[in-house]
């Protein structure tokens, strides 16, 4: 899990990129503020025209966050560029691929098609919120056990759609799984493994193995 309040010596690829450009450095982490520090967000240059800025607060993976956004921001860019939650991926940017899948009030959506301002007061869940106290979610465990990915780019979105499915149906049929995942595309073609991972996660959640 990424921590915003504890600078570390470790150089991450993302941190490196952030430090590499002045504009990125200025506009990197705006929010991810704990509730007791709400309102202390720095404002990136593009946000300094007060008329364009909206103070937004919502619950991200169970924790309240406050962030200042432009009305023209999508939820996806807000998560990735302003809250440092880069699990949801930007791929097609028009709802065709599912790499940006997150849950909004428990419902799986393309975060590239959701406006950030729509999320005021609502609950957003991303891949970063699935593991609890370092223990992976059963769907994550199952993806590892079944080797349900190759390049991994679709994986965060795929896992969120699988979680949403298993939240609604304890033991989905293969047909139901295929239909539920129809909005998530894997170019590596790992669908059979994903199918097995859903089966395995369903069993694990039911208590068996």
């Amino acid at each position: 899990m990424q921590q915003h309040d504890e600078p570390t010596e470790r150089v991450s690829r993302r941190g490196f990129l952030r430090g590499a450009g002045a504009s990125l450095a200025a506009g990197g982490v705006v929010g991810a503020i704990q509730s007791d520090k709400a309102g202390t967000a720095t404002v990136e240059p593009a946000l300094q025209n007060a008329a364009d800025v909206v103070a937004l607060s919502f619950v991200l993976n169970g924790k309240p966050v406050a962030v200042k956004v432009r009305t023209g921001f999508t939820l996806l860019e807000t998560l990735r560029d302003h809250l440092d939650h880069t699990g949801a991926k930007l791929v097609c940017d028009y709802g065709a691929c599912g790499a940006c899948t997150v849950l909004l009030d428990g419902v799986a959506v393309n975060s590239c098609l959701v406006l950030a301002v729509e999320c005021q007061g609502r609950k957003v869940e991303t891949i970063e919120g699935l593991a609890v106290d370092g223990k992976l979610h059963p769907v994550q465990e199952a993806f590892i056990a079944e080797d349900a990915r190759q390049c991994g780019f679709c994986t965060p979105g795929m896992i969120m759609s699988c979680k949403s499915l298993l939240d609604r149906k304890a033991a989905p049929t293969h047909q139901e799984t295929a239909e539920a995942l129809a909005g998530n595309i894997c170019r590596c073609g790992t669908y059979f493994n994903i199918q097995r991972a859903v089966d395995r996660a369903a069993k694990a959640k039911a208590g068996g193995r």
């Binding site: 709802g95 959506v109 393309n110 239909e179």
Partner: peptide, 9 residues
């Protein structure tokens, strides 16, 4: 129509 993710919205 479209995908489950789009149909949810």
């Amino acid at each position: 129509t479209a995908t489950p993710l789009v149909r949810n919205r």
